[in-house]
């Protein structure tokens, strides 16, 4: 009797054209994919391979640790037949330091909307084609990206400016 094929092998085969490298740590598989074709890769994963649930979109800033500097991380989940499989995979797309931008996956999963807004808000990554590219947690006129590693936590000027502007608006 042959053992059933490994689902990860099937996924790897299907999206092999997009994969640059892969790694496994503590049983979690990570594919580093081409940033320019992220939407094609994601719609293939969603429509053909059944990854209907986008768990998370986030960014890691590797200022001096790694090159390229940013990695956009997508965590996908597949329920499988009768909601029994429950497989998670992680996709990563690396972005350069200057004007980091990537296509938005909101057209694939609408749940990416707020997650990408937060990623923009915190890291300044532009998501091309996002329907609502505003800040989400920080004030709308804030001019910093707080989760970047070169953000100066002691610099309170920009938050002070935002606060004073809001006070002025309130007085008017």
């Amino acid at each position: 009797m042959t053992s059933p094929p490994d689902p990860v092998d099937q996924i790897r085969e299907k999206i092999s054209g997009y994969i640059l490298s892969e790694s496994t740590f503590r049983g979690e598989i990570t594919f580093i994919v081409k940033a320019e074709s992220i939407v094609e890769c994601c719609s293939l994963l969603k429509n053909t391979l059944g990854f209907t649930y986008l768990v998370d979109v986030t960014v890691v800033d590797y200022l001096t640790v790694k090159f390229p500097r940013y990695e956009v991380v997508y965590l996908l989940h597949r329920f499988g037949e009768n909601y029994e499989e429950n497989l998670k995979i992680r996709l990563k797309a690396a972005l350069e330091q200057d004007n980091p931008a990537i296509d938005s996956v909101t057209s694939v999963w609408s749940g990416a909307n707020w997650l990408e807004r937060e990623a923009y808000d915190m890291f300044g990554i532009t998501f091309r084609g996002h329907p609502d590219p505003r800040r989400i947690l920080m004030p709308e006129d804030y001019d910093q990206f707080p989760l970047r590693k070169d953000f100066d936590v002691r610099d309170r000027e920009s938050s002070k400016r935002s606060f004073e502007r809001a006070l002025d608006e309130g007085r008017e």
């Binding site: 768990v55 640790v65 991380v73 965590l75």
Partner: peptide, 26 residues
């Protein structure tokens, strides 16, 4: 969900919290 990136030191290099309320509010 907690997504922790470690660089081998005693502090998390990045700790991301995937809060259910945040996503559900959408």
């Amino acid at each position: 969900g907690y997504y922790i990136v470690s660089d081998g030191t005693g502090k998390p290099y990045r700790m991301r919290v995937r809060g259910p309320s945040f996503v559900n509010l959408q």
